[in-house]
Design a protein around this nucleic acid. Structure first.
Lengths: 242, 242
DNA sequence: CCAAAAGTGTTTAGTATACACCCATGT
DNA sequence: ACATGGGTGTATACTAAACACTTTTGG
């Protein structure tokens, strides 16, 4: 199957581990003909699309290749096509080495994906893939720092208005875990009692007859998110006013 | 200057006239070598980008060419790149006639723009450009119906959470006009007294010492939006709960 | 003087915020 | 027994929703 050489998808894959928002990155190491390392840095995950593939399929393919998972929460959030986005010195070298034309303008369609780090074992497939906490990410290849920042902004906006925090947790989760998701994404803290009062009004958050086990404290009740109930009960909110 | 032949921007230009949400469309008429019309339909406004141009600049250029205006509210909302998006019979004919390759996959980066219809006199430049009320738009060329629908969805979401309704009104507007903007975009009705109570809490909505003139009823006070005040007073809202 | 839209207040229900203690489990 | 996080209620302030009449202008 033939790749399209000017359309790519990049995926900012967020993985939550109850402590940090982590980002999945790939090591990129360029070696000269003698195998001596010229440089090594990190990129976001992405790929070109096949000629007859939709961008949504391509993004899901990238996710599947790295995680082996399907049905992951995935959202297209912004497209990047600045004329100079691949023109840093190392990026040109990398593309040339890879047999690609560094002067070809490539559109990257940015996506973000949400998953629970606990649900995934990474598929290495020859490339070194790893989780890095968002706040510890340094300089990335290409324009990937910009893509990451825009992804985080999009995630913050989305999480404020739609119930997607659950996507970063395992299927069954505790209310404290849910609260941490929101606190970490939004960079705030909530009062436990008020938070629980709020969520108790969300019918789509289903309490289970099941508790945590193996924790050195009172075990917490587990909850599930029901998209069905959400779709049936959601109201339109209007809050454009400050 | 050379166009890039695989990256285009499409702009869904919304123009409000106090009654309808209108969309700016362009007539596309294909004639054979004898000048006989083969078909005629409508497209959204858009263009290819120049090789050294950012997508934001390209979208603003499209807006400027049609309206003569700069500084219009403009937002990139979604990118369209389905392999079959240009492959309807009429679209292939049109592209061929235009000397373009209908099999080349073209990415379209979708934007929407907001303006007051009253502020603009259209620049024709040989092509027939016109306003059509959103609800009266029929079948459009290419995948432009899909782009339009997605633009409307994006507009509705955005308008619920950020103060952009003003962008569809002239600089000075009445509260009733503002109410109509929201009612028409969201397809609901608001109580006049409650609406005014809400907006009176928005510090960034500045009452002027000026009234409507020439209306056959009690003239309404005019208001302005202040982005300055908005940026200084906005709070973070969290409403992911139903 | 008539038509048309502007402008204004109160009541009730619901939501937001602030705040402190006892409980169940593993070690 | 102690350390750890789980789980709960009340009072006050603010916001939402429902609802009807008088005012000002042009024609």
């Amino acid at each position: 199957m033939k790749y399209n050489d000017y359309i790519s998808v990049d995926c900012v894959i967020f993985g939550f581990d109850f402590e940090n928002l982590n980002v999945l990155v790939v090591e990129r190491t360029l070696r000269d003909e003698n195998g001596v390392e010229e440089f090594s840095d990190l990129t976001l995950t992405g790929n070109h699309i096949y000629e007859d593939e939709t961008i949504n399929d391509a993004a899901n393919r990238v996710l599947f290749d790295l995680t082996g998972l399907t049905g992951i929460y995935l959202e297209q959030f912004k497209t990047f096509a600045h004329p100079d986005r691949l023109k840093k010195e190392n990026d040109r070298k990398w593309l040339l080495h890879d047999g690609r034309n560094p002067d070809k303008r490539i559109v990257s369609i940015g996506h973000f994906a949400l998953l629970s780090k606990r649900d995934v074992t990474l598929q290495w497939k020859g490339r070194n893939v790893k989780w890095v906490p968002y706040h510890e990410i340094g300089e990335l290849a290409f324009d990937h720092n910009e893509i990451l920042e825009k992804a985080v902004v999009a995630l913050r906006e989305k999480v404020k208005h739609e119930p997607i925090g659950f996507e970063l947790l395992p299927e069954k989760f505790t209310l404290t875990q849910l609260q941490r998701v929101y606190e970490i994404i939004l960079g705030t803290e909530f009062d436990k009692r008020n938070f629980r009062k709020k969520v108790s009004r969300m019918k789509y958050l289903i309490p289970l007859d099941e508790k945590q086990t193996g924790v050195a404290h009172k075990p917490a009740r587990l909850y599930m998110f029901s998209r069905d109930v959400y779709e049936k009960t959601k109201k339109e909110l209007i809050d454009f006013w400050v």
